[in-house]
Amino acid sequence: MKRNRRIAFLLLLPSLLLVAVFVYGFILWTGWLSLTNQNDLFVPHPHFIGLHNYVRLFQNPRFLIDLKNTAVFSLIFIPGSLILGLGGALLLAGGVRFEGVFRTIFLMPMALSFIVTGVAWRWLMNPSSGLNLLFHSMGLNLNSGWYTDPNIGIKAIALAAIWQLSGYTMALYLAGLRAIPKEIYEAAQVDGASSGQTFRFITLPLITPVTLSAVIVLGHISLKIFDLVVAIAGSSGGPAFSSDVPALFMFITTFQANHFAQGAGISTVLLILVSFLVIPYLRWSLATEAKE
C-alpha cells in the first residue's frame, strides 16, 4: 500500500514540477512584473514601483470601458447560454425522434474554433450584408449596425458566443436530466404534482450542480474571451472600444506597445476576477466530494 503511494507520487512528480514552474511560477512572475517599471523592451534599471501600474490602469478610460464590456458580455452570454441550453435539453429529454441527429446539430458549434465562429458571424453581422440583407428580403427594415454600432458592440459578440456555447450547456443539462431517477417523477405524479410543479421542485433543484458547473465554465470564458472579439470586431476593439475586452487590451499593451509591466497588471486583474469565480466553486466541489 505504502509502496503504491510512493510510486504514484513519483509518477506524478514530473507533471507536478512542470505545473509548479509553468503555471504557478509564471503567475508569481507576472504578479512581480506588474509591480515593476518594466514598461519598455529593455529597461536599464528594473525596480519595484508599487501599485503605480494598477493606479494608471484604473485611470485609463479604455480599461474602464473594458471592465464594463466584460460585465455586459457576461450578463448576456451566461444567462443566454443557460436558458437556451436548458430549453434544448428539456425538449430533447422529452424523447424526440432523431434525437441523436438534433444533439449532433446543436453540439456542432462547440467543436468549432472561436476564430471560425468569429469570421462567420463577422459576415452575418456586417451591416451591408448577412442578416441585414436577410431581414430586408423578408420585408423587415432592421438596419442594425451590429458590432459596428458603438451602442451595440460587445452585445453583438455575446450573441455569437451564445450560438457557439448553448449547445454545450445543452449537452451538460441533458446528461443532468438523464441522471435524475425516474422514480422521483413517478412519485410526484402519484402525489398529483402538476408538470410546472415537477419542474420547479424536482428538476431544477436536481440539476443545480450542472448549472453551477456551467456557470463556472461560461463565466471564465466570458472573462478571458479574446479570439472571438478579434475575429469579429478586429484588434482595435471596435468603435469607441465598444467591443474591447481586457484580454485584447492586455495583448495590445504587452506586444504592441511593449508596456510589459502594464500588461502584466491587466493579466493580474483578470486572474483575480477569475479566481472569484473558480475558488468558491473548487471549495464547493471538494466539499461535496468529501461528503460522498
Partner: peptide, 18 residues
C-alpha cells in the same frame, strides 16, 4: 515609437465616435 503610436490610436478610437 510603437507605444506612442498605440496610445494615439487609442485616442482616435474614442475620438472618431465621440
Amino acid at each position: 515609437k510603437e507605444s506612442w503610436v498605440a496610445a494615439i490610436n487609442d485616442v482616435m478610437t474614442l475620438f472618431v465616435t465621440r
